[in-house]
Amino acid sequence: MAEHSKRFPVQHIIGFVLSIVLTLLAAWAALGSDLPVKWIITGIMTLAVIQAGIQLFMFMHMTERESGGGHVPWNMMFHGFVLAAIIVAGSLFTMSFGFTHDHEDGGNHQQEEKHEEQSGH
């Protein structure tokens, strides 16, 4: 990679333009499109992951051979993100799965569960 001797930082400019396009696309998908909410959330989270990849690969020189670090930077980031996904998804699963946050509903929800338990026994 003789990239550091290049006169013009082509990779940075491509990464920058892509980031701006992805940001605007995400904003439009969230606020301007008529897609169902589930699709919007899946879509914009995917766009976020792509944009994070752009930062890591195109701006942060994550896979540079001269670093002497081999695959360690890549490994660190990959495992960091895997842990993050487990922590966020796991917390949501244990704390919020099948539970509504509506304040008026909250009380009824618990009562219903009790009723079910009682009728079951």
Binding site: M76, G80, L83, I87, V88, G90, L92, M95
Partner: peptide, 18 residues
């Protein structure tokens, strides 16, 4: 260090999501 920062922020994101 940055990997540890990802995990730090993930706990805050998890709290926020919950």
């Amino acid at each position: 260090f940055l990997a540890a920062e990802i995990v730090l922020f993930s706990t805050l994101f998890a709290t926020y999501a919950v």
